[in-house]
Amino acid sequence: MERRHHALSSEGISQCLKLLSDPTRLLMLKLLKDKEYCVCELTAIFDISQPGISQHLRKLKNAGLVRERREGQWRYYAIHPSGPEYALVCSILQQIDEKDEVLQTLRQKEVIVTCR
């Protein structure tokens, strides 16, 4: 199925780029593009406090870049595939080399994290 491209305003693109200019949020989106994560998993992967991770996720959610799913006391996040900025975000995320040292370190941490 071909995805329709939605033209964004200069303000929309600027706001999206501001959000992605933070390395934590950028790499968080890179991970969330492939898989859904619980807040506790992201806390362990990024070695950031729960309030810190929640603040990043709140900004991404408010911008429509991630979606939230609740399951009991747990909250799971994934990239929002139908947001207007989706194509822009995916284009940027594709530029991150899979061999990036920081990304590889984060992916290694995710293997040992479980909160269920």
Rank of each mutant, 00 (worst) to 15 (best):
K18M: 12
S21F: 08
L106R: 11
P84V: 09
Q55L: 15
I48P: 00
L88H: 00
W74R: 14
L19Y: 00
V113F: 02
K18S: 14
L29Q: 01
S9V: 03
L93R: 01
I45A: 00
Q104F: 09
E68S: 14
H80R: 13
H5P: 02
E11A: 10
Y86E: 04
P51M: 05
H56Y: 05
L8E: 09
R25L: 04
K109R: 15
Q55W: 14
V66L: 10
R75I: 08
L57H: 04
I53R: 10
R116G: 07
G64Y: 09
E110W: 05
C40Q: 13
Q50A: 13
R69L: 04
Q94W: 09
P23L: 07
L88A: 01
E68Q: 11
I48M: 12
Q73S: 07
Y77Q: 06
M1V: 04
C115D: 13
K61L: 12
G72I: 11
I79L: 15
G12V: 01
E110I: 07
V113Q: 11
R116Q: 01
R75P: 03
M1I: 11
E36P: 01
K109T: 10
Q50R: 15
M28K: 07
H80L: 10
K30Q: 08
Q55K: 15
L32K: 03
D34R: 14
H80A: 15
S54Q: 10
E110D: 11
Q108R: 15
E85S: 00
R116N: 08
C40P: 01
E68H: 07
L93H: 02
E85F: 00
A44Q: 12
R67G: 02
P84K: 15
E71D: 09
S49H: 01
R4E: 14
V102F: 08
C16F: 03
R107Y: 07
K35E: 15
Q55A: 15
S10W: 01
V66K: 09
N62H: 12
L106P: 08
L32D: 02
K109P: 06
A44N: 14
L57D: 07
Q73F: 12
E11V: 11
P81A: 10
S49G: 06
G72K: 09
S9D: 06
R69I: 02
L106M: 13
D100N: 15
K109N: 14
D47M: 13
R75H: 15
K35P: 05
S91M: 09
Q55G: 13
M28Y: 07
V89L: 08
P23A: 12
R75Q: 13
R69K: 06
L29A: 00
I53K: 08
K99M: 05
I79P: 02
S82P: 00
G52W: 07
C38V: 12
R75K: 15
G52Q: 00
D34C: 06
Q73N: 14
G52F: 04
C16Q: 02
T114C: 12
E110C: 06
Y77K: 01
R3I: 14
E2Q: 07
L93K: 00
A44D: 13
L60Q: 08
Q95M: 07
K109V: 10
H56I: 04
